[in-house]
Amino acid sequence: MLTVKKASRLFKDGAAGFKNITFTVQKGEIVGILGTSGCGKSTLLRVLSGLDHADSGTIHLNDGSPSGAGVIFQEPRLMPWLSVEDNVLFGFKNPSKYRKQAAHYLSLVGLSEFAGALPRDLSGGMAQRTAIARALASQPSVLLLDEPFSALDAFTKMQLQDLLLDIWQEEKTTMVMVTHDIDEALHVCDRVIVLSGQPGEIAAEFKISQPKPRSRSDLSLATYKEKIFSILEYSNTGLQKYSVR
């Protein structure tokens, strides 16, 4: 579905960004990219979405749909002058023809009653739901999520993670999700790629075979958490030593 080969993108004389990233995403899979801040994971997602370009390496989207990748950003990024419905149809050239589609995705994210509302009247969680509906409406072959819930409170965050899983159950959307939240990655993803270092490189990859939806108190996930945590902690202490010296 999505193949990334030896992709690199470096900033600040090679001290930031990511390098030598290789992975593939299968159709219908949810892949998490996990790392501490500054490991280049958001840059990686920007490169995957085409907003930024890679210095080297190839990114290949085996495209079944015309629209390529859909992106959900950390902030909702709604157009404040458009109603919720028109925001959902923002990617369409001729929105008025696709009202039915908008209604479908709005009901999928539970916002049917707010189709006519303006973004200023929405809560943070509702705005992000609208952004999810917008990204889905263009039926992307892969959905790229850049820390999509990190600006939300803990409760809303869990609701939206479960919403994402419900959507996946219904539409089997392929997703790549960048996050710094280990619990989020373990709750949602089929596979977790851990980035560490500056520039970020793939430190480990975990396949989470527990069926979704998973219980948040699933003990078997705790072992993954411990492993991932030790990798990230290790790369962090290395960083501290470096900066002290």
Binding site: L51, V71, F73, M79, G91, S138
Partner: peptide
Amino acid sequence: RKLIEVGKVYHFNSLQLVRRIILPASL
């Protein structure tokens, strides 16, 4: 800039960016 990026995700050309994002936003 963040709103303009949304347009870029949808592969808007310059004219579409101006008409659908820049004009209403600078109104």
